[in-house]
Every structure is written in structure tokens, then in C-alpha cells.
Amino acid sequence: MIIKINGKQENLKGKTTLLELIKDKKLNSAVIAVEYNQKIIPKEEFDKIILKDKDKLEILTFVGGG
């Protein structure tokens, strides 16, 4: 299935939850926010989201700023 992560298409194989994807990408859940099909997902629900074809994810984190 093809999903979009931060504007870029990505091909995922098999059934994957959002939490698994985050771990695969070696991201630290503590410092990210996720919008799944334009809806903000609380961290404790990352494992409840099962990704499907054409999903859109925005994964954000903190950077330096003033």
C-alpha cells in the first residue's frame, strides 16, 4: 500500500500500526506529534491506528526557534 508521509509517497508492506511505523523510522514518540488524515492522534492511540492505502501522515517534531 502507498501512504504519504510528510508529503512524500512511501510503499509499506503488510499490516502496520502507526506505532510500528514510528518505531521503524526510529522516531522517539516522546518528542513527536502526528496528524493522521488531518486529525491529531494522541500518543496513547498510536498503536490503535492501522495504516491503510492512501493514508496521509504528517509527523512533526521540535526544532530550535525563537
Partner: peptide, 16 residues
Amino acid sequence: VALRRVDFNAITQNVM
């Protein structure tokens, strides 16, 4: 701090 899209090429460091 500011919030930006994760850069998958540079995720080893985070300002936090």
C-alpha cells in the same frame, strides 16, 4: 522551540 516536519535523514538529534 518551533515545530517542523521530521527530517528522516537527520533524526538522531533533537533539540529536546
